[in-house]
């Protein structure tokens, strides 16, 4: 096989990514350093604005809380699923997979119905006489968190179930025989073995929750912008393309930074597991 031929098969994919992913990215990145008084002028302007900082803070907070809640709910659920009989496990896996493959609009729309002013939850609470006037649940930061958890919990569960299936129950039995209580077993035996999977899940959920558009758009409304909805608003509603580009670059930077940290920590954990 000649050298030219070998590369021939790589050309379409390489060109495709270079021309349609990296070049457009450069095209939005360049004006952000050339239009200001100095290369970082626009960025320092953006990072000094109280409003924009609030958006960044909200984006990160929502992503962090979503990740934590999905781990807290996902871990026991995954353990429970992995301890079922094979037939049940398959049924449960399909139930978990179904929402993942269902359109995000549909899944968020469900929460509009539940959280709205005359929604299911308000009606229920009023019916039980727990509240006298409907609560404002929709178009809040909490609504975005609820929607994001709903969106990403199945992904966390499938990631954790794979790992939980690989646990050896005999180690837990041995610990129980020696007098360990379930919580000790969870902390000392299960968690260390599942730590890499928890981090993998956390990476998937954090990256997804931080950059998601549909959930904050549908459940947060116009007054609770996150970075992704801010990009769309600046670009398409206000026509401030350079500002939108600045937000886009900051979003890429932040997500790469957090994911890099999580991956670095996963790498350290993996090494520790291998050495053990």
């Amino acid at each position: 096989m000649s050298k030219a031929n070998r590369f021939f098969l790589l050309i379409p994919a390489t060109l495709g990514i270079l021309v349609f992913a990296l070049f457009p990215l450069l095209q939005i990145a360049i004006p952000t350093v050339t239009s200001g008084a100095n290369p970082i002028a626009l960025y320092s302007q953006f990072l000094q604005s109280h409003y924009d900082l609030q958006v960044i803070f909200r984006t990160l907070t929502i992503a962090v809380i979503t990740t934590l809640v999905t781990v807290l709910l996902g871990l026991p659920t995954a353990l429970w699923i992995s301890r079922q009989t094979t037939a049940w496990r398959q049924v449960l896996s399909v139930i978990i997979l179904f929402p993942i493959l269902t359109n995000a609009v549909v899944r968020n729309f469900a929460w509009i119905i539940i959280l709205g002013k005359n929604g299911v939850l308000n009606n229920l609470l009023q019916g039980l006489h727990l509240i006298s006037a409907p609560l404002t649940l929709l178009y809040t930061d909490s609504a975005i968190v609820i929607g994001s958890v709903y969106l990403f919990l199945p992904i966390m569960i499938t990631t954790l179930v794979d790992s939980a299936n690989g646990l050896n129950p005999e180690i837990e039995e041995a610990a129980a025989v020696l007098g360990s209580r379930p919580f000790t077993v969870l902390r000392e035996i299960i968690l260390p073995q599942m730590a890499p999977a928890i981090l993998t899940g956390a990476i998937l959920v954090f990256a997804g929750a931080m950059t998601a558009y549909t959930t904050p758009q549908l459940l947060g409304g116009n007054r609770h912008l996150v970075m992704s909805t801010l990009i769309y608003q600046q670009a398409m509603t206000l026509g401030n393309w350079t500002t939108a580009s600045v937000v886009a670059i900051v979003l890429i930077g932040l997500s790469l930074l957090v994911l890099g940290l999580l991956r670095w920590y996963t790498g350290r954990l993996d090494r520790r597991v291998q050495h053990a």
Partner: peptide, 10 residues
């Protein structure tokens, strides 16, 4: 690695 919203915008 690029958020989808950024791909769309770019």
């Amino acid at each position: 690695l690029i958020p989808e919203i950024v791909i769309g915008f770019a």
